[in-house]
Nucleic acid binder design. Structure first.
Lengths: 341, 341
DNA sequence: GTATACCTCTAAAATGTTTTGGGTTTTTCA
DNA sequence: TGAAAAACCCAAAACATTTTAGAGGTATAC
């Protein structure tokens, strides 16, 4: 492996000059710069990134901790988000370090990566209303950006969707079809997006004169199986709903299956909506009415926010988040109406 | 941040001794070891992994390059595999570096990560019959392990499923239901698994006296949309098939949709089988008959193979692949019969 | 009583880079 | 012609660790 020293010896100049020539400092003559750069490429020089990192006290790496539970790994949500983050990182010349941690060990992974100086910052997703990751990272002033806000804190970089608007669209759409008994299937309300979406649904139903009684709100998990179970519960009620708002697409797929199993015609007898618009939504039968959130693009956006946050600590940071002004971004999602409603 | 030097100064001993005490060398007295370790934890010492890496010439990081095309990111296949790799890596104390590269830039990402000495080895997946990644890595003797073999080379670590057996099961199952006009929808045959599976299907059909004419073999892409298109093509034939073997689950979902659209009853009029058994397979309507490959577990297994390969270069490597003997592993998949056939 | 082995510790080198703080030569301008 | 300024270059320190090679002392063996 060829090093700066090798180049220096070959050209009979100092290592310093080689380093500065490659970096394009103005106190190196244009000739020398040209000469050094040519020899470097000719000799196949590639900087040793580890040595660079040791010296610069920067890792050029961003971290993502993906939680996993025993029952299953990759929810489509995380893989989409990861792809967006990874794409942006790769384009900016940053490495993406992914750690898979059991839920209960999650925070210790953040600590380990920070203490080992292995990442410059984190992308956080699926925030909780009170999120210990965010509390911890803010408390030690370590750079991060998140997809999702939290209940008690506002002064950190995040991307959030306008749930109020999204749910208003969904409720209006269903009410417009004549539905009055509308139910919800939600993940645990400790999860920020779940709490926010439920609040939004309730608010808009009341606004248009509908009520959302407690038995019409089912709290479960994130996945299809749970959507199936919760939908059956709802349909077992003495006055079952005619429309079910599911807080993500996986849940909605499960709910559709439950409805079908009871011989209901999804879209006419029973309306079902999702949230996210994962690729499968369009291709499911019937195709799912849902709220589009371009998750991969959001991943890129959060990454840009993170880069900006890191830059403020390291003004000479290699990656630049051009065109990013605000530290908090609220996206406006769109309702995609398909046959399930 | 506390360093070895800080500990050494506090205890009035040398940096060397601190280092060796923490590492548990036998030429440090038990007392000193105890003292040093206590002070280290008390002071909150965490080794600077970058400095360690520079010295040890090892990164404790494994790399995965995920290809993406313009139209879509995370196929379920990659996210499952990634989860398995990540889980294993995290358990072994290794970092997982994920790069997202456009197909045409894929090889250059490998080179970049190697030249920048950023990973100790790679996990490769979805091999091609002639795979330039494998050619390159073997040629420079850089450690890797793959999910999938290649046509012209046998002496590298890989995990492969027994396609011959799997396809024999599928063909027997369909033939047992009385199907004689059986078709295939396959990804490009330059992809190793696609070529191998097609060969296996053909072989077993001939073995039981059936033929697989050319018009019954559709070559397309990997995704649902393509499955849909190809299935329509097959059903447009003068003598359409009564069973379609899809070479992965996504393709099968698309084929099911195409069949439904024509008013065919999937499972009775038209049998459809998939491959992989992704979580959605069980939950699709109708549930998909498919070949189970535990992709996440395979990810872990390939990672273990990789660790073993790295160990052979660095006998002192931190991660150990215990219980891994062979360098090539052929897994026996199982046919999961559901309602789609 | 001397040689040997052993136990415990350490100074210095090495890893490959960037930065600091000059140093030397050449150019510019009065 | 002399002084100041500019242009170009470099030695050494620093980053935090591990390894090498050996020092100094005590215990063991003959």
């Amino acid at each position: 492996m060829v090093t700066l020293k090798d180049i220096a010896e070959r050209l009979h100049i100092s290592i310093t000059t080689v380093s500065r020539a490659l970096a394009g400092y103005s106190d190196v003559s244009p000739e020398t710069i040209r000469l050094v750069r040519n020899t470097a490429t000719e000799m196949g020089y590639v900087p040793n990134s580890i040595a660079q990192r040791l010296q610069k006290k920067v890792t050029d790496t961003i971290g993502v901790v993906v939680p996993y539970s025993a029952k299953g790994y990759g929810e489509p949500f995380f893989s989409e988000l990861l792809a967006g983050i990874g794409k942006e990182a790769s384009e900016q010349g940053l490495d993406l370090l992914v750690a898979y941690a059991k839920r209960e060990k999650e925070l210790s992974f953040y600590k380990k990566l920070i203490d080992g100086r292995r990442v410059d910052g984190f992308v956080i997703s699926r925030t909780l209303c009170h999120d210990e990751r965010i509390d911890y990272l803010s408390s030690i002033d370590f750079p991060f950006a998140s997809f999702g806000m939290v209940e008690n804190k506002q002064d950190f970089p995040f991307v959030e969707e306008d749930s109020d608007y999204a749910m208003a669209c969904v409720v209006d759409h269903l009410a417009g079809k004549g539905h009055t008994r509308i139910a919800c299937i939600a993940p645990p309300l400790s999860v920020m997006f779940s709490a926010v979406r439920l609040r939004a649904v309730r608010k808009h139903m009341e606004l248009i004169g509908l009520s959302l009684p407690d038995e019409m709100v089912c709290i479960g998990s994130f996945d299809q199986k749970d959507g199936y179970v919760q939908a059956h519960k709802l349909l077992d009620l003495p006055h079952p709903p005619t429309a079910i708002i599911c807080f993500n697409d996986s849940i909605a797929f499960g709910a559709i299956n439950a409805g079908k199993e009871r011989g209901l015609s999804i879209g006419t007898d029973l309306a079902i909506t999702g949230f996210d618009d994962v690729p499968m939504a369009e291709l499911y039968r019937p195709p799912l009415t849902t709220v589009r959130q371009p998750i991969a693009d959001i991943g890129s956006l959060v990454t840009k926010l993170l880069i900006k946050a890191i830059q403020e600590k390291h003004p000479t940071y290699r990656a630049k988040a051009d065109g990013i002004e605000k530290m908090q971004i609220i996206l406006c999602p769109t309702l995609i109406i398909r046959e399930s409603s």
